[in-house]
């Protein structure tokens, strides 16, 4: 059997602030295979974003083991982590985080112009257009964010996440700022990526969107449990 894409074992994250330390993640176990889609649901403040930031190497767990495609990366140094973020992960957030002084195409190209390897301009443009096409907005390539709707902006963000062909897509409430219909389009675009073998971890408050994922996991006070299909 091949290694799963992501395997978390006993991941804990403790927040050390001014007050006494608070455990945000408490022994999380999670396995995600290639092409699989997983929804994570839970109350606000339950630690969903924290879990995503550990998976996406924005942050490191305090204990537990993290294997990415069979490799233990629990303690990778920051240089390597940056490289892995570039090569393995794509991110989509509730807010779109587009740079307003750049066009849609330049915003997507940002993930290619990150100091990790170099693509000539022509190839860069082809990849960017391909990614924009995947989410259906290639015709908006030259527009700046200020002249796009929320749904269009979020799809630019998805194109940015997809442009390097990541192994895993991490989405933190990507439909939170969109109406139901537009939100459904965004979920479509994310699910389309899983058909190409990309893993998808979606944090959402929306039952319908969660229901479209292969599995649903509940996060409650830092403890992750699989929801048994009714």
């Amino acid at each position: 059997m091949t290694d799963p894409l992501i395997r978390l074992t006993g991941i804990t994250k403790v927040l050390k602030g001014q007050q006494e330390p608070r455990t945000i993640l408490d022994g999380v176990d999670l396995t995600v295979a290639a092409g699989e889609s997983v929804a994570i649901v839970g109350r606000s403040g339950s630690g969903k974003s924290t879990l995503l930031s550990v998976i996406g190497l924005f942050d490191r767990a305090d204990s537990g083991q993290y294997e990415l495609a069979g490799q233990d990366i629990s303690r990778v140094p920051e240089r390597r982590a940056a490289k892995l973020r570039s090569s393995h992960f794509g991110f989509v957030f509730q807010r779109f985080f587009l740079l307003k002084h750049l066009t849609a195409a330049q915003n997507v190209a940002m993930a290619l112009v990150n100091g990790q390897g170099w693509l000539p301009r022509r190839e860069r443009r082809a990849r960017v257009l391909e990614a924009l096409d995947l989410v259906g907005i290639a015709h908006l390539a030259k527009n700046r964010p200020a002249r796009m709707s929320g749904g269009e902006q979020q799809r630019v963000a998805i194109a940015r996440a997809l442009v390097r062909n990541p192994r895993v897509l991490l989405a933190d409430e990507p439909t939170g700022a969109l109406d139901t219909e537009t939100g459904a389009l965004v979920i479509d675009a994310l699910l389309a990526a899983t058909t190409r073998g990309c893993g998808l971890i979606l944090v959402t408050h929306d039952r319908d969107h969660a229901a479209r994922m292969g599995r649903i996991l509940d996060l409650d006070a830092g403890v992750l449990t699989e929801r048994v299909p009714a």
């Binding site: 996406g56 924005f58 920051e78 240089r79 940056a82 490289k83 892995l84 973020r85 570039s86 090569s87 991110f91 985080f97 740079l99 940002m110 993930a111 990150n114 100091g115 990790q116 940015r160």
Partner: peptide, 11 residues
């Protein structure tokens, strides 16, 4: 955001 998409901090 640039760090999130993999830009090294030193860069």
């Amino acid at each position: 955001l640039r760090r999130a998409v993999g830009t090294p901090r030193m860069l």
